[in-house]
């Protein structure tokens, strides 16, 4: 497959993020938000046809639904009921990989979806709440998507509120090992990272075309592990772009990263 000549940064991120799901086999792929959902959908259509997926409401699908309003005669490929209570049965059976977009991610891979600043009793900014993050993080693999890579998201020190468990020895529950925690890829508008550095340090996996190591480090509030060779994030193929376009016919992906820049910024 040859790389496409032109693609957007969102499309580059979707293809990079879809790799999270490629080798997962028969698990529920949950992508919350447009880019993660398209990433899981792309994986199901290409690299991992065994992946399972819901319609984001209450049914399991054999084929991912296109995003947004669909023709009146569209028939979803429903294969089973999957209401919210059953999602927890799935989570706790560990057959799931979720990709989510928290507001903060610290050096331990702990994330925050709950509240910013102030005190816990009186936060400066109340957000969603812990949602399912505590359970997801200790039950199954998780990846993160961050559309705006900066030091507010990747903040110095611990998250203001720790919604999901990470590789923090001080918080490790008795009888558990840090290896029980499984954070996979962190895909941002600048790069792909993981927690594969020494002692689970965050590590640069690839740089998006035109982004420098310095730019990533400057926008991360803690030291990155930088391997000797850092590859460039693989460009999408035309085939992948066509599948993405069919899964996102209203081009919602154009609104996921500020100003919808091209994928190659060199």
């Amino acid at each position: 497959m040859t790389a496409a000549a032109e693609y957007t940064l969102a499309e580059l991120c979707i293809v990079a993020a879809s790799k999270s799901f490629a080798n997962e086999g028969e698990v529920l792929g949950t992508g919350i938000g447009v880019v993660p959902r398209l990433a899981a959908s792309l994986a199901m259509k290409t690299t991992n046809p065994d992946l399972m997926m819901t319609d984001s409401e209450a049914w399991m699908l054999s084929e991912p639904n296109p995003i947004g309003s669909r023709a009146p005669d569209f028939v979803p490929s429903t294969e089973s009921w999957m209401g919210f209570s059953r999602i927890f049965d799935n989570v706790w059976s560990r057959k799931r990989h979720a990709m989510l977009g928290p507001t903060q991610i610290d050096k331990y891979g702990q994330s925050n979806t709950s509240a910013l600043g102030g005190s816990y009793d009186k936060p400066k900014t109340m957000m969603l709440g812990a949602r399912g993050f505590p359970g997801n993080s200790i039950s199954h693999p998780n990846s993160f998507f961050v559309p705006g890579h900066n030091t507010r998201v990747f903040k110095e020190g611990e998250c203001d509120f720790v919604s999901s468990i990470g590789y923090n020895p001080a918080r490790l529950p008795k009888g558990h090992s840090l290896d029980d925690i499984d954070i996979r890829l962190v895909i941002t508008n600048l790069c792909v990272m993981d927690f594969g550095g020494p002692d689970h340090q965050i590590r640069l996996v690839s740089l998006h075309p035109g982004v420098s190591v310095e730019e990533v480090q400057q926008n991360t509030g803690y030291p990155l592990h930088i391997p000797a060779e850092v590859p460039t994030t693989e460009a999408p193929t035309q085939e992948q772009l066509d599948i993405i376009a069919a899964l996102d016919p209203h081009n919602q992906r154009a609104h996921q990263i500020l100003d919808n820049p091209p994928g190659n910024r060199s």
Partner: peptide
């Protein structure tokens, strides 16, 4: 956590004081 709420409701429904779970460990 969303699932902890489900477990809390189940415990109340079943008349037991708690349900053990991993969910919440290591978090605020």
């Amino acid at each position: 956590d969303e699932g902890m709420m489900l477990l809390g409701l189940r415990a109340a429904s079943w008349g037991i004081p708690f349900i053990p779970t991993e969910v919440g460990l290591g978090t605020d």
